[in-house]
Design a protein around this nucleic acid. Structure first.
Lengths: 224, 224
DNA sequence: TTACTTATAATAGTAATACTATTATATTTG
DNA sequence: CAAATATAATAGTATTACTATTATAAGTAA
């Protein structure tokens, strides 16, 4: 499934010029992923990116109006990709219980396999989501950006999984809170496990993050 | 309880000169809280702060070596304050169940009352924690800073509540994950409720955030 | 092939940021 | 009153996150 050369298309509101449309654009996206992962979002600049891709700062601005806009683009690409994985892995699975289990796995497990067909390294992109994505929406411009559709892919993923929750337990009061808590929580736990381990109960190779959230969700949904 | 003129002392590793030790220092702290809340952390600068407190940028640097350091100081002050509230509100409460309920309330409820005895506005500080605190630890310097004790107050709060969890259910596998998920999650839900409401099931005046996390925790801990 | 269009690169410049360093002037304390 | 300390003012720096302009290269249509 991961090996499909799937094509992810991103709303044109999220770029100035479509980076898919040229070799330079693709290099901007793939190199920026490597560099944001390596340097962190703060120390990443279009100037440094220009040097790495053998081009110029000003050329990067023709694709993205700011580095914030580039981060938002990457985040949307990521959630589109997750959405594909969700749809494929739950297709033709009759049991709602099993579909929800698969969905939880997709959003809480570490991404370890890169889809070699694309110029986007999903392993690094997942690391960026874990470490940097909260900076995209913790901004004073959030309300304007939300209106422009900057976060709609993420919201759609949450909605999809919330629908599975309601299928299993139609009277559950907090499906969106449950799923956004699981998604954001899993990212935090991955980050904490590496940097502030006393905030977690992470143990290498024991899948504790996935198991914890699976357990949390199914207990929350169980009817007494 | 909230009205006690309690004194919160902050480790000297978290400032260059103790802001409590002078009127200027106190003004720096109280005004920076107002300004970070109003402008957001990115647009807040020591220069603007200097103007507001009728002093100079360079004077602020004598108290905090950077605006990041100031944010870390505020975060630690906040968690020390929460720790006080936790200790007081669970003192002499015999039932472990009730103590955990109170603890969850303290970390998930909105802060609406300001302790007028202090120069720190806890309502605004809570808003800063919700909107800005993740920027403090999502930095490439996290490991160094963690070694220097920048996050120890927060870790202590998580540890305290995790201990309550284990008291109620000693065989529960993920007490730290559960509590850090609840705390971070509640902050996210408060933020989402204002800016990305479709990620929540927030309804004004229905206490859904507190109820959701209370429900989540007690169901997770229930033994079948 | 030429002319036109479009993409890219190079250069320069700007206001602001996040500081550092130095000196001058108050204020406190011994 | 002198000495020490705190604060304020001034200036300066490297870098950032851009914008604007021009030059050059490549692709395409007549």
């Amino acid at each position: 499934m991961d090996k499909l050369p799937l094509h992810i298309s991103i709303s044109s509101d999220l770029y100035t010029k479509n980076p898919e449309s040229s070799v330079l654009g693709q290099k901007i996206v793939s190199k920026s992923i490597e560099m944001i992962d390596a340097l962190g979002f703060e120390d990443f600049t279009f100037k440094k990116l220009g040097v790495e891709i053998g081009s110029n700062e000003s050329s990067v601005y023709r694709y993205f109006e700011s580095k914030h806009a580039l981060l938002v683009y990457l985040i949307n690409w990521y959630w589109s990709w997750i959405e594909y994985k969700l749809v494929f892995s739950t297709l033709n699975v009759p049991s709602a219980n099993e579909r929800l289990t698969k969905a939880i796995f997709i959003v809480t497990a570490e991404v370890t396999e890169d889809n070699a067909f694309s110029y986007i390294n999903e392993v690094l992109l997942n690391k960026i989501i874990v470490s940097e994505s909260s900076k995209a929406y913790h901004t004073k411009a959030i309300d304007d950006e939300n209106k422009k559709g900057y976060y709609k892919t993420y919201k759609r993923v949450v909605q999809r999984i919330s629908d599975l929750v309601l299928e299993l337990n139609p009277s559950y009061e907090f499906p969106h809170m449950l799923i956004s808590t699981v998604i954001e929580g899993a990212h935090h736990q991955r980050y904490f496990s590496k940097h502030l381990p006393s905030l977690t109960d992470f143990e290498e190779g024991k899948n504790n993050i996935v198991r914890f959230y699976e357990n949390l969700v199914f207990k929350a949904l169980a009817k007494k």
